[in-house]
Design a protein around this nucleic acid. Structure first.
Lengths: 146, 146
DNA sequence: TTAAAAAAAGACCTTAATATCTTTTATGCG
DNA sequence: CGCATAAAAGATATTAAGGTCTTTTTTTAA
């Protein structure tokens, strides 16, 4: 069970917009991509699917760009995983045994289930807005890096 | 952090050989691949790298095939992961944040570390031989399936 | 000592994820 | 209006994992 790079780009992209989007300034893909060191057009595609789902907003044209809406900050992380990665990620045996369940567990089964349930729990109760805590520029640094 | 299909093939392949290899019979790739429903030539490649490392043995020619040696059953799972998948799998931030460590943890950091450490612990103290417990045909069914 | 069997080796193919490049569409402003 | 700007769209490229196929090498046993 793991999360794709695309999911990481999506989450970090939204967070960046949410953080920089105060006082009605819209955020352009160019800025997001360069600050986060993420491939520009690939990020564009990902943000587009998120916009289509209404989790983020955008407008074209001069002074256009991406901006948060009333759903953005209250979106649960699990929704974003589902959107980008699908959910079957949660259902595979870590050791790729064919029959692996509580009746016939692989040696990792109980650990995996414990971890997975706790991740699902956290992702179900955590929203994108919840992630934004502490000093703003510290937070940006943690998603931007370099 | 996840384990590749190749790793699963490797582990299941070795286990199959270990289980069927009693009374000096060597096990042919054809049999392993068909019983485990795994692509034959791809499995061949994987077993070859394992044989090269001395974890399993093989001979060519009539009545040749794969068989266990004195290292096979005492090989730790962590060794096999390292061999097939490398170890950097253990070191990535699940959310792909750029700066993620105990000083600047992502929201999943503590859960991931807890899980990872426990997997590393289990894999470090569990050998391939340790996995073989219980009824033999039940065990084969759990790695073979269909 | 040769024919068959079986792994080893290596060339090539497929697929999904990731990434790039070009063209189109919508928007705001002078 | 018409031009510049920025996202949307879509075509194409790259990469790594996974998978297939053919040829070579080694071994055994008749």
């Amino acid at each position: 069970m793991y999360f794709s790079k695309s999911f990481g780009y999506a989450l970090r992209g939204i967070l960046y917009v949410a953080l920089m989007n105060d006082e009605n300034r819209k955020i352009q893909i160019e800025e997001i991509a360069s600050r986060l060191s993420v491939p520009r057009h690939f990020l564009g595609k990902i943000l587009r699917t998120i916009v289509k789902q209404g989790i983020l907003s955008s407008t074209k044209g001069p002074h256009g760009g991406f901006f948060i809406n009333n759903k953005t900050l209250s979106t649960q992380l699990i929704t974003l995983v589902w959107l980008i990665d699908g959910t079957q990620r949660f259902d595979e045996c870590a050791l790729h045994f064919r029959k692996c369940n509580s009746a016939h567990p692989c040696p990792l089964h109980s650990k995996v289930v414990e971890y997975r349930d706790s991740v699902i729990g956290i992702f179900g109760e955590t929203t994108i807005g919840d992630l934004i805590v502490g000093n703003k520029s510290d937070f940006i640094r943690s998603i931007a890096a370099r």
